[in-house]
């Protein structure tokens, strides 16, 4: 058993080693699932951590694959773990150099939906953050144009939140052509 543990520690991913060295106070949790390192990061330091992951010459997670969010409001186990933060904003990164991925998760409380935008690091984050804003109502501070991208401009609410009814709140029935054509 001891030998196995040693092997595990030896194969600890480089990204975790370096983050523990530089951003130990930012890490809330860490895990590895199906070969992907998953880290949970404090909101206050997420921009610094992402910038570090991108610019560090050994890690070089230069490709932002996706930005999305998860509504954990009906997932008690997740809620308890992270101080009852309703949303979890998720960044998926890929390093062409190391050919490996890392998933950065950030707990966001419902009463403070602000999170720094990473459009300055990745231009591709622009539409991904707009989609996350549209679907979950996460407010990305510093985004050049945080408007809806999927739903119509006059749509109310954020439909991927768990408390949004599947059949909507009557959008299909009270449909206003004049308003939308104007």
């Amino acid at each position: 058993m001891n030998e196995e543990k040693e092997v595990e520690e030896q194969s600890k991913p480089l990204v975790l080693e370096k983050l523990e060295e530089h951003y130990a106070d930012a890490l809330l949790a860490q895990d590895e699932t199906r070969g992907t390192v998953v880290i949970v990061v404090r909101k206050e330091q997420v921009y610094a951590v992402l910038e570090y992951l991108k610019t560090d010459s050994e890690l070089a997670y230069t490709f932002l694959v996706d930005v999305t969010a998860v509504d954990n409001s009906q997932m008690e186990s997740e809620l308890m773990q992270f101080d009852y933060a309703r949303f979890m904003v998720v960044y998926q990164l890929y390093s062409f150099q190391g050919q490996c991925r890392v998933r950065v998760r950030v707990p966001v409380h419902e009463n403070d939906l602000n999170i720094p935008s990473v459009t300055a690091l990745w231009k591709g984050a622009n539409w991904l953050e707009r989609e996350t804003y549209d679907m979950f109502g996460i407010n990305f501070e510093g985004h050049p144009d945080l408007s809806r991208i999927l739903m119509p401009d006059d749509f109310e609410g954020h439909p991927l939140r768990k408390d949004y009814p599947l059949r909507g709140r009557g959008e299909r029935e009270r449909f206003n052509f004049d308003k939308q054509n104007a």
Binding site: P159, Y164, L166, R167, G168, E171, R172, F175, F177
Partner: peptide, 13 residues
């Protein structure tokens, strides 16, 4: 697709 975003039959309009 009985969802919030889909028209349930274009013959409504």
């Amino acid at each position: 697709f009985d969802t919030y975003t889909l028209i349930q039959g274009v013959d409504q309009f």
